[in-house]
Amino acid sequence: LGPKYVGLWDFKSRTDEELSFRAGDVFHVARKEEQWWWATLLDEAGGAVAQGYVPHNYLAERE
């Protein structure tokens, strides 16, 4: 699936296409579209919880 990303700060969605998340949440990014990335929010087991657009500057690649 490629690298995983972690949320740096809490983010509250403003549209139906955006995905709310908390700092520390883990994502798989499917598409990078300039300022907004289409991402899947993952649970602790790595299963998909939700999908939506997230601001790229709120995520960091997980080491």
Results as ranks from 00 to 15, higher is better:
W37C: 05
G7P: 03
W38S: 00
L1C: 14
F27L: 10
D25K: 03
L41N: 01
E18D: 04
G47Q: 15
W36C: 06
W37D: 00
H56R: 13
A60P: 03
P55F: 05
D16I: 10
A39K: 01
S13M: 05
E63H: 12
L42D: 00
L1A: 12
G52Y: 03
H28K: 07
L41Q: 03
H56N: 10
Q51D: 08
W38G: 00
G7S: 14
Y58W: 06
A45C: 14
W36K: 09
G46C: 10
V49D: 01
P55I: 10
A23P: 03
L1W: 13
G47E: 15
V29Q: 00
G52M: 03
D16E: 12
V49H: 05
L41H: 01
F27S: 00
G2H: 13
Q35V: 11
W9T: 06
R31I: 09
G52Q: 01
E61V: 14
V26D: 01
F11Q: 02
R22S: 11
E61C: 09
R22W: 07
W37H: 01
E33F: 12
R22F: 11
A39V: 15
E34Q: 11
G46H: 05
E34M: 10
D43P: 00
N57G: 09
Y58F: 11
A23K: 13
L59G: 01
N57M: 08
T15R: 14
R22Y: 09
K12G: 05
H56Y: 14
E44L: 09
D25N: 07
W36S: 06
R14Q: 12
F21Y: 02
E63M: 12
P55Y: 07
S20V: 04
P3V: 13
E34F: 09
D43M: 04
K32A: 04
F21T: 00
G2R: 13
G2M: 14
A50V: 06
W36L: 10
D10K: 04
D25P: 01
Y53V: 03
K4I: 15
E33N: 08
V26A: 06
F21S: 00
A45D: 14
A23Y: 05
K4D: 10
K12I: 14
H28T: 14
L1K: 12
E33T: 09
N57E: 10
G46M: 05
E18P: 01
Q35L: 15
V26Y: 10
L42A: 01
Y58V: 03
K12L: 13
E63L: 12
W37P: 00
A45G: 11
Y5F: 09
N57H: 11
H28M: 12
D43F: 06
Q35C: 15
H56C: 15
L8Y: 04
W9G: 04
L41M: 09
D43S: 07
V54W: 04
A60I: 14
V26R: 06
L59H: 03
G24Y: 03
K32H: 05
Y53W: 15
K4Q: 13
R31M: 08
G46F: 07
K12Y: 14
A50R: 11
Q51R: 07
A23G: 04
D10H: 06
P55D: 05
G24N: 04
W37L: 04
Q51W: 10
A39Q: 01
Q35S: 11
A50E: 06
A30T: 15
H28V: 14
A48N: 08
L42T: 03
W36R: 15
Y53L: 07
Y58P: 02
S20L: 04
E63V: 13
K12R: 11
S13P: 05
P3K: 14
G24A: 02
E34W: 08
E33I: 06
K32G: 04
Q51F: 09
Q51A: 11
K4Y: 15
E61S: 09
K4M: 15
D43Q: 04
Q51N: 08
F11M: 01
A45W: 14
L1S: 12
T15L: 08
A23C: 07
A60R: 13
L41F: 02
L59F: 04
S13A: 15
G47N: 15
G2K: 13
F27A: 00
L1N: 13
E61D: 08
S20R: 02
A60V: 15
A60G: 08
E18F: 12
V49I: 12
E63S: 13
K12S: 12
A48D: 08
R14L: 10
G7A: 15
L19M: 10
G7H: 04
G7I: 07
S13K: 11
F21H: 00
W37F: 06
A45F: 14
D43C: 02
